[in-house]
Nucleic acid binder design. Structure first.
Lengths: 199, 199
DNA sequence: TTGTCACTATACAAACCGGTATGTAGGGTA
DNA sequence: TACCCTACATACCGGTTTGTATAGTGACAA
């Protein structure tokens, strides 16, 4: 059996060491910030030795990058799930905002993990930056497709404005610890959709 | 002579040790992130000993807080300056976006220093958080006054939507290293102003 | 049985972290 | 002169950082 694995020994089965490290990283990095969490803490909390961690991910930066990739994967799944039931473009647009609002309501909300990582990873060569950009590009594409489906004359223009509202709302919601910015952005986005597609 | 000083020994004259530390902190914290810059580096780059730094600011957290306060002070000055020449509400609104665009064009642009600090300072008790909130509240107030002056029926509502566009544009501009999100937000904000005030 | 694999346990290296202790030099002032 | 203030230099504290080296353990497969 030719198994395709990028690096490290382990499998990615639910309870495997690798998965436990990734899950713990996801939680701790988001809660406390990437720089604030050391590999010692991380390994201890994952119930794994540091040696195992390094066997799987090579370095902390490597772990950070894989963690972001995993987060991106999960994020795309969520997006697909919440818009599975949607039929119209309006419903699909709402689904995106609903997805974010779902996040925001949960306690321990600390904004967008990718934006936060972008703030912390100041080195432009960091392997994680690529994944951050890929994620944001995924959202932009997603929004553009909705605008196209709605028949907007200039879909990418509308999508970018939606994106501004969305990103701004997440930042505002984080600082205020309150979901109303997202509701406001949601409303504004729908208004824009009706203006652009309906006109 | 009864001199009013909050803490530390020094004056704040242009070339003073205190001011040099603050200036260096402003540059390094913004460039590399707060956690990434140690007090050793900071003191060395400011041409000051660590003892002096601690005499003035008590702790790194204290320095971070004072640095943010200083940044807020400068930011308000900039805002006052760019809108000094403005007469109409529309001009004053544009001045805010112009102020941000001015920033964005400069190289080494790494987004809003307050948002970034908010991401890094995960401890809710950190003295810097208060200043971040004060700064954001200042912007909100500023925008609300513009909406009032323009005769919008619900000024705080319009101001919050402008804020979403502004904050979103800064985040997008940072990730893309490109000022077009700010131009787009600027346009959208003016459109909204005309709809709300003109109608 | 022997080997491989994923993992644990421990210990260590070298650098860096925030913060402090001790002592000195120079200017302002009374 | 005597004092105070500011800043200097140096050396140190305990703890943490990322990363590695070494040895051992249990499971599974040929």
């Amino acid at each position: 059996m030719v198994e395709t694995k990028q690096s490290g020994p382990g499998t990615s089965e639910p309870g495997s060491a690798r998965q436990r490290i990734l899950d713990t990283a996801s939680r701790l990095f988001y809660e406390s910030g990437i720089r604030a969490v050391g590999v010692n803490t991380l390994a201890a909390r994952a119930g794994v030795t540091k040696v195992t961690l390094y066997a799987h991910f090579g370095s902390k930066d490597g772990l950070v990058a894989e963690h972001l990739a995993e987060r991106d994967r999960r994020w795309r799944e969520t997006l697909a799930r919440v818009s599975a039931a949607s039929e119209t473009a309006e419903q699909r647009l709402s689904a995106v905002f609903d997805g974010y609002e779902e996040w925001t309501v949960a306690d321990g909300f600390r904004g967008c993990g990718f934006v936060n990582a972008g703030v912390e990873l100041t080195d432009p060569e960091h392997p994680g930056r690529e994944i951050i950009e890929r994620n944001k590009d995924g959202i932009r594409t997603w929004l553009t497709e909705i605008a196209e489906a709605a028949g907007c004359p200039d879909p990418s223009d509308v999508a970018e404005e939606w994106f501004l509202l969305l990103e701004g709302a997440v930042v505002r919601a984080t600082l205020r610890q309150d979901a109303t910015p997202l509701h406001r952005a949601h409303r504004a986005a729908l208004r824009l959709l009706r203006e652009e597609a309906g006109g």
